[in-house]
Amino acid sequence: MSRQTAVAPPPLPSLWEYMAPTDWRSVDFISDLHLSADTPRTFDAWSAYLRTTDADAVFILGDLFEVWAGDDSRHDEFEARCANELAEAACRRTVGFMAGNRDFLVGLDMLRDCGVLALPDPTVLQAFGQRVLLTHGDALCLDDTKYQQFRALVRSEAWQQDFLAKPLDERRRFARAVRNESEQLKRSNPAPMDWADVDGAAAVRWLHEAGATTMVHGHTHHPGSEPLAPGMLRHVLSDWELDHPPHRAEVLRLSARGFRRITPPGVALA
């Protein structure tokens, strides 16, 4: 967990709650697959997972896509393949999607076409007698002040309306430029432990306000579980990377027995 900052923890945004049906046996959480045409093995693993998981629901907590320049891209070759996989999965079980920092422009047109449930960030899931606070996690990384300023800008309705009015090719160039800048920053500081992490005070405040004791989030690419405060726990989701070593892919599953981490079927991480 990151050191405490001088920044006041942000209040919990408008909270949305989802109550799981009583006949559900398990819910899977994944995030940070960063799918693109350049990651065919990761795409194939994701596709196979969606087709074979026996979970009653799959909740995707952000950064499913490396970039998403607008819902009008969903008809292009790679994006259309992804949309088809989501639509097929949603025919068999509940699929929920929460926007991340790379794919925050995934909109209702895309999700409705695929039959996917839109999950606001944050969402409280009530399942198996638990209240679990779900978030991508980027809004709580307060140490990264430059990113927080950028996030506030691009999440505003005015910026998005102006941006989405531009030609798709221009939007894609902008998205690639932002992605490249982010990757350069990572290369200059390659240790994931040194990247900005969720602020502990902010996370605890959100949990208190949500009446929850467990948080599930992605974004940081440092999977694990740890206490945030006495009686409060966070589970950090794994990113997926099967095109370049070291390979990573993990699903966090919630059932009546609690949380456990599983390797997607058919994935060899050695």
Score class of each variant (00 low, 15 high):
Ala175Pro: 09
Thr213Asn: 13
Asp143Glu: 14
Pro245Ile: 15
Phe259Asn: 04
Met232Gly: 06
Asn101Tyr: 02
Arg74His: 12
Glu88Lys: 13
Pro227Ala: 04
Tyr49Ala: 05
Arg41Glu: 11
Ala57Gly: 13
Asp38Ala: 15
Thr263Gly: 10
Glu183Tyr: 11
Val251Cys: 09
Leu269Arg: 03
Ala202Trp: 01
Lys146Gln: 14
Lys166Ser: 13
Gln130Ala: 13
Ser31Val: 09
Arg81Thr: 15
His75Asn: 13
His219Ser: 03
Ile30His: 01
Asp121Ile: 05
Leu64Thr: 06
Asp162Met: 14
Glu77Cys: 14
Leu269Lys: 04
Asp113Gln: 11
Lys146Glu: 10
Asp162Glu: 15
Gly96His: 04
Pro265Met: 04
Asp32Val: 01
Ala48Pro: 12
Ser188Ala: 15
Glu77Met: 14
Phe65Gln: 12
Arg257Met: 15
Ser156Asn: 02
Gln130Lys: 13
Trp16Leu: 12
Pro167Arg: 00
Val236Arg: 00
Val7Met: 12
Ala139Trp: 05
Pro120Ala: 03
Gly200Lys: 10
Met193Cys: 11
Arg112Phe: 10
Val236Asn: 01
Phe43Ala: 07
Leu33Asp: 02
Ile60Val: 15
Pro190Cys: 06
Gly266Ser: 08
Pro245Lys: 07
Tyr147Ala: 02
Thr42Trp: 04
Glu66Arg: 11
Thr145Trp: 07
Arg179Ile: 06
Trp24Gly: 11
Pro227Trp: 01
Asp109Glu: 12
Asp56Cys: 05
Leu168Asn: 05
Val267Phe: 07
Arg25Thr: 14
Asn101Trp: 03
Thr263Val: 14
Gly70Asn: 03
Gly137Glu: 05
Leu252Gln: 00
Arg102Ser: 06
Ala203Tyr: 06
Ala152Lys: 12
Arg155Ala: 01
Trp16Lys: 13
Lys166Val: 07
Trp195Lys: 05
Asn101Leu: 03
Phe174Ser: 10
Ala20Glu: 06
Phe43Glu: 09
His247Trp: 13
Leu140Met: 10
Pro223Lys: 00
Pro190Lys: 02
Ala90Thr: 07
Pro227Lys: 00
Arg51Ser: 11
Trp240Tyr: 09
Gln160Val: 06
His222Glu: 12
Val267His: 00
Phe29Ser: 02
Pro230Val: 08
Tyr147Met: 05
Ala6Tyr: 09
Ala45Arg: 02
Glu157His: 11
Thr22Gly: 12
Pro230Lys: 03
Gln184Val: 15
Glu183Pro: 08
Lys166Arg: 15
Met193Tyr: 13
Ser47Gln: 15
Thr52Leu: 09
Thr214Pro: 05
Asp56Pro: 03
Ala89Ile: 05
Asp113Ala: 11
Cys114Arg: 00
Phe163Leu: 06
Glu241Thr: 08
Arg155Asn: 05
Val216Asp: 00
Ser238Thr: 01
Ala139Gly: 14
Arg92Leu: 13
Asp199Trp: 04
Gly224Asn: 01
Arg248Gly: 05
Ser255His: 03
Ser188Phe: 10
His244Met: 13
Ile60Arg: 00
Ala158Leu: 08
Tyr18Cys: 12
Val216Met: 02
Asp54Pro: 05
Arg173Ser: 13
Phe128Ile: 10
Glu183Gly: 10
Leu111Met: 04
